[in-house]
């Protein structure tokens, strides 16, 4: 069986940099909603993760 880490935040995409700090996942800053959607789409497609909305302008891409 392949071993992989589940429930891992692969990336954080945000409209507001003040809402995120530190942590192990790379943070991507988006200019507007459209860019937020685009970046998170790319990231989830590339990493095979799922994008979740924290409902404060921060999206996280998580591997399940």
């Amino acid at each position: 069986m392949a071993v992989s880490i589940n429930k891992l935040i692969l990336a954080v995409v945000t409209l507001n940099h003040d809402l995120v700090s530190g942590g192990g996942a790379p943070v991507f800053l988006a200019e507007d909603q459209a860019e937020l959607d685009r970046i998170s789409t790319y990231l989830s497609r590339i990493t095979g993760g799922v994008t979740h909305d924290l409902e404060n302008g921060v999206y996280i891409v998580v591997r399940h």
């Binding site: 959607d37 998170s40 789409t41 989830s44 799922v50 994008t51 979740h52 909305d53 999206y59």
Partner: peptide, 8 residues
């Protein structure tokens, strides 16, 4: 679940 992307 929570799905962020509108397209999805």
């Amino acid at each position: 679940m929570n799905l962020a992307r509108e397209e999805v």
